[in-house]
Nucleic acid binder design. Structure first.
Lengths: 343, 343
DNA sequence: TTGTACGCGTTATCAA
DNA sequence: TTGATAACGCGTACAA
């Protein structure tokens, strides 16, 4: 009752008195094979329970139809949506997706990159670990002509495809929105200095928006969190609320932080948005659950995944080298909800 | 500057005047190879930039060190945590994880299962698509001695490993908790009749808890949602709140639904938990964000992922067949938060 | 301790 | 339109 050995094209060939090459071609609708043979082969393959061995095909053809995804974690809403976008796009073209989590560790990232290369993936999509400063472990892909796309948290100095949002513009827009609501003392909750420069770009946008609207830069209103967690957000918020003159607006560089700020403010009886307007970043699910609803910046995760996968697919077959790799910018929007709507 | 061809053990063998078999063994610390040779080989391999080709090894050894994961989607908090648990465990043993999303479609699931088999994964972990009634597409793994673990949404009639929680007990506990808070008209929001019987089990627990505490079963208090979404939850909640005698407690079979019920109730001015106590299911992140905080049932996603992966790893090498496959039950707990705390 | 030689399943090349 | 055969890179049984 149990099959002990896989059916191979060799078995089919034997049964039909054909050559394995004929079977192989027939299965792939090769034009040089007669319709009759194709039909016969496919029927027999089906009957015998043939399942192609992609390993063998991969070894032979030196392509695996697999996209490797190397990201910090799969549990953040942004990243799981990113994966989803990648997976759906890959699936449509018959590609599989292999996932690896660096857990924001540089060492793990290096080791996993090697592992991906070892698996001979056809392409790689990666968002850098927080810790990562040096990206030479990605060079192996480029050197071997394996398309590489960095997404969201990307290195500045690596000539490969990048799919990102304009963090500067988004930070600017978020801040400008608060200014338009009448805020004049706008705080900024941001995260540790980092290589991927996404927070620093948002901060740059914040700073420029202040300047362009003739608002003073108040150092004590900018708080740098060590980690992007609820607890750190609460700590930073309390620090702000303890100031002699409290901020009347907060631009938080992530929804978790913003939500934390909202709840901390509520505990202290600070009215939102009347006394304090808040805007976050990412449009995570929690932003719609928190009361008041959190205004935020959209971060098109699924679209970014789709775009990344499409770039991989498009470049897998091309043998062009050393050309300039494009940077894809995806659009973000200010999503105005209750936490900042004063007008 | 660019490498054009991968370095193989053959290249190393040539350089060192050794046989490929010696290289192969040296790289794996085979006991029959002298330490000196091992050291020399490894050093040279490193220098030459050798990266093992797992495809070739997989083809040769008929094992890929890859675990296939076939689930409805990666974007639900429960499932992304599940993946995370699987991936971490697999990684530790040098296994890779390949992810496929069925999007709750039976047809996709069938096709992806074939694709997984085609990839010759070493083991499969799956949570069934909502649509799935027939599970014969998983038989190919069992027939070929590939360990198969169903997790969370599992078939009843398939003799393979299962990692689940006791949904009946959890439903009972949730309901009992509400009863202990003084609720006597407890509504239940559940989801469409389904094969995986997780909602029906929870409902059974609900019913038995009522019976055991001498509370009448009131049909109009049980509402079946078509899909587990916020919108459906709101619709169902409004239906309940429109009744002549409103429920004083709700056990929702999912946190999204519960959150939706809370917000709907708040809009109608119903006080929580005083007039209405609510408990959800899953302990999703939103349950801690909603105001009032949602009481819920823990659903140990990461642990379930870990357990599933461990079962796979343990059974990959065993050749025992036809034995009874164990069912692993993981523990759930009532997490009492504001939405149901009356006492 | 090391070497020889074959096979894993597929596909591409060349020949018929 | 079909067939014979080599090759992809590795691991292992067997021999030395």
């Amino acid at each position: 009752m149990e099959e002990n050995r896989d059916i191979t094209i060799y078995d089919i060939a034997e049964k039909l008195n054909l050559a394995t090459s004929t079977i192989s071609r027939a299965l792939k609708d090769h034009p040089s094979i007669s319709d009759k043979t194709i039909k016969k082969v496919k029927k027999t393959a089906e009957e015998m329970g043939y399942v192609p061995n992609t390993l063998a095909a991969g070894l032979r053809g030196n392509k695996t139809n697999t996209i490797g995804v190397l990201i910090p974690t799969v549990t953040q809403p942004f990243l799981s949506s990113l994966i989803s976008g990648i997976e759906i796009t890959a699936q449509k073209s018959g590609y599989n997706v292999i996932i690896m989590q660096s857990h924001d560790s540089y060492d793990e990232e290096v080791s996993l990159a090697k592992s991906l290369y070892s698996s001979r993936v056809s392409g790689v999509i990666s968002s850098l670990a927080m810790e990562t400063r040096d990206t030479s472990h990605f060079q192996q892909f480029v050197s071997n002509n394996i398309p590489l796309v960095f997404v969201d948290r990307v290195p500045k100095d690596f000539n490969t495809f990048r799919v990102i949002i304009d963090n500067y513009a988004a930070g600017y827009k978020a801040t400008k929105h608060l200014i338009e609501q009448g805020c004049i003392r706008i705080a900024h909750l941001t995260a540790g200095s980092e290589f991927g420069n996404l927070y620093s770009e948002r901060k740059r946008g914040y700073l420029d928006a202040l300047k362009d609207h003739n608002l003073p830069l108040i150092e004590e209103l900018i708080v740098n969190l060590k980690t992007v967690t609820y607890e750190e957000g609460a700590k930073a918020s309390n620090k702000l609320f303890d100031l002699e003159i409290r901020p009347d607006g907060i631009f938080a560089s992530g929804d978790i932080i913003a939500v934390s700020a909202i709840q901390t403010a509520k505990k202290r009886g600070i009215k939102i948005p009347e006394e304090l307007a808040i805007i976050g970043f990412n449009n995570d699910p929690i932003s719609q659950i928190i009361d008041p609803n959190l205004s935020t910046i959209t971060h098109p995760a699924a679209k970014m995944g789709k775009a990344s996968a499409e770039i991989i697919l498009k470049n897998i077959k091309s043998n062009k080298k050393d050309e300039v790799k494009e940077i894809t910018f995806l659009n973000t929007e200010v999503l105005v909800r209750e936490s900042s709507k004063r007008i």
